[in-house]
Amino acid sequence: MENYADLMFRGAVAELQKTEGTFEKYQTAYKHRTSTELGPDEIGFIRRRDSFYLASITDDGWPYIQHRGGARGFVHVVGPNRLACGDYRGNRQFITMGNLQAEERVSLFFMDYMNHARLKVQGKASLKSVSEADPDLVTRLGSSEVPAERILVIDVVAIDWNCPKYIPTLYPEDALREVVGPQIAKLQAENEALKSEVARIRGA
Rank of each mutant, 00 (worst) to 15 (best):
A5H: 14
R33C: 03
A125I: 00
T22P: 08
F94S: 04
D155E: 15
A117Y: 03
G44H: 06
I46D: 03
N91L: 06
L7M: 13
P147E: 07
I43A: 05
V78A: 04
V198A: 10
F94H: 05
K25A: 12
A55F: 04
K120R: 13
S143G: 15
E192W: 01
A12F: 02
Q183D: 11
E104N: 12
W62L: 14
I154Y: 09
V138L: 03
A102P: 01
S129L: 08
G79I: 08
A185C: 00
A117T: 10
K165R: 15
V130Q: 03
K124H: 10
A5K: 01
R202E: 11
I43T: 14
S129F: 09
V138K: 01
Y64W: 11
L83N: 02
K18R: 15
N115M: 10
G39Y: 05
L187A: 05
L38R: 01
V106M: 06
I159T: 15
I95C: 04
H116A: 14
A71L: 14
D174W: 08
M111Q: 13
V130K: 07
A84Q: 02
P40F: 05
Y53P: 00
E197V: 06
G69I: 05
V156E: 02
Q101W: 07
M1K: 05
I46S: 00
V146P: 00
D136H: 13
G44M: 05
G181A: 04
W161V: 11
Q27M: 12
G73N: 13
G98F: 03
R33A: 14
L7W: 06
Y30A: 04
C163I: 11
A193Y: 06
T139G: 06
L100T: 02
T28Q: 13
P182F: 02
L170M: 14
Y166M: 12
T139C: 05
G44T: 09
D60T: 15
I46F: 05
K165M: 11
L83R: 01
Y171V: 15
V78R: 02
I184W: 06
G203I: 04
A12N: 08
E15I: 04
L83C: 00
T36G: 13
L119D: 01
D134K: 04
E104I: 09
M8K: 14
R177V: 15
L194H: 09
H67R: 12
